[in-house]
Structure formats: C-alpha cells, structure tokens
Design a protein around this nucleic acid. Structure first.
Lengths: 138, 138
DNA sequence: ATTGAAATGGTACTAAAGTATGAGTGTGCT
DNA sequence: AGCACACTCATACTTTAGTACCATTTCAAT
C-alpha cells in the first residue's frame, strides 16, 4: 500500500516534469506533440502493467496451496507421530502399510488414526484428510 | 493471444481518434494540452493494468490447484455418475451418505466406487482421491 | 520423585469398505 | 431392430477401518 502511494507520487512528479519539458520543447519546436503523447502513453502503460504485476505476486504468494500451518497442528494437539500417520493416510496408504512405513504395528497405527479422527472431528479417514487440508495442515 | 492483439488494435485506433480530436480541439483552443495528456495517461494506465490482469488470470489458472482436466476424465473412461461419486468421496462422505446425496442406494454407490478404484488403479478410496488429484481430475 | 502426555501394542468387537456376480432398465448409435 | 454402455440394485462374502479397553514404557515437566 505504501509502495503504491510512492509509485503514484513519483508518477505525478514525472508527469509534471515531462509536461514542463514538453511544453518548453513544444514552444521551441524541438518536440512534436505526437512524440510527447507517445512517450506518456508508453510510460503509463508500463506503470499500469508494473503495478498490477506487484499485486499479482502478492496475491499468488498468499493463495498458494503450499504452506503448512504448524501452529494450527499444535492447537489441535496433534502429536508428531500422529501427524506422520496423517501424512501417509493422505497418500492413500492402509493402516498396515503405514505401520510398515513407520516400523510399528497396525494396532498402533489404528490408535493414532482414532485419535486423529477425534482431533479433526471426523468419522472417516477421508473426512479427516479433507478437514486437514481445510485447516492448512496438509 | 488473439485477444491481446484485438486490444492493441482497438487501442491504436483509440489513440488515433483521440489524437485527431485533440489536435482539432487544440487548434480551436477548446481543449488544453494538459487535459489531453491526462486522458491519454489514464487510458494507457488502465489498459496496462487490464492487459496484465488478463495474463494473471491465465497464469494463475494454469498453476493453481484448481482447473479440472475434463479431457483426462474422458481418457480414464470415468462416467458422469462415477465422477459425482468421486467428488463426494473426496469430501469425506461415506457410501451411504453419497447414496443419500445422489438419491441412489448404497449398493449403487459401491458399484461406482469399485469401478472408480479400477479406473484410477487404486485399492482404497483414499488412494483413489490422491490419484485423482495428481491427474488434475479433482 | 510423581505426574502426565506420547508412543506402543494387544484383544475383541462393530461398522464400513470393497469384491464378485448377476440382472433389469434405459439410452444413444448404427 | 440390435448392440454397447451407463445406471441401477441386490445378495453374499472378504477385507479394512474404526471403537473400546486395557496395559506397558519412555520421557519431559513440576
């Protein structure tokens, strides 16, 4: 926002200078009015494009799919191990497969999944995954 | 691309008209040169901003998680009904719940899910959802 | 040292999910 | 008319998923 104002300020200054210069040259006959207008048109066009690009960069970086909210994970009281299970769950692995990945029994995985379902207020793992993505946890 | 060309074409036309008009008025003394320049500056600024926005929309739509590859859906031979089931599945609904949403029996949903699993080369619904997202189907 | 949370895992059970098979209905295409 | 396909549904069965309880161990904080 401050940046935009700054750009506008220098922009206005540029116009004034250009105008003064143009008027002066115009009187002297060095510069044709078409040339002046063309320059101004190009400058403003570029400025318009540039300012918009700034916005785009910001907006994209905000709305990106990535970025995990680690703070939210803590808020939901999800432990490290539970989170690992959650990640594999989202990859589509079965409890048994997750157990093999983490070198624990299927029972343990079930325990983790159960507490995850409670913490994510879900009844099925698919629902838990959905919620996790809504919460920017995955 | 065609659109950009079109915009440029009408832009150039607009400049010419404006210029003619400006020159005419300038000679008559109706229009000050400052006013003319201001109008041109504003117009070009807006056009610059607008064109850039067009680009943004396109670029965002390509890199964004959204945008469904309908062509790929067809390639995988996924029918309309199956796709509806897939969408609700990804929302975390159970087969019974999906049946209620689509006004069909749980049996029917199971049939659709089974064929979806085959078409998406998966063994579990969670895996199918994952694949679907990889394929830009969801 | 005691407390509490995290991690592990076992048993037993219920509830979903998923497979296999068959079958009726409707619809678009040739 | 006839064919292929999508959609529907049912039954029977197997496999996972999920719940409920309980128990042990580890480890950090009080």
């Amino acid at each position: 926002m401050k940046r935009t104002l700054l750009i506008f300020a220098s922009l206005i200054a540029a116009i004034l200078i250009l105008f003064q210069l143009g008027q002066y040259s115009f009187i002297k006959g060095d510069l044709k009015i078409e040339t002046l207008i063309s320059i101004i048109a190009i400058v403003f066009f570029l400025v318009g494009a540039y300012i918009n690009r700034q916005y785009r960069v910001k907006r994209v970086s905000i709305s990106e799919p990535g970025e995990i909210d680690h703070h939210r994970i803590a808020e939901l009281h999800i432990s490290k191990r539970e989170y690992e299970v959650l990640k594999w769950m989202a990859e589509g692995l079965s409890n048994k497969e997750i157990g093999e990945k983490l070198f624990v029994s299927e029972s343990t995985v079930k325990t983790h999944v159960s507490s995850l379902l409670q913490k994510l207020n879900s009844r099925r793992r698919t629902q838990a995954i959905q919620r996790a993505k809504q919460e920017k946890i995955l």
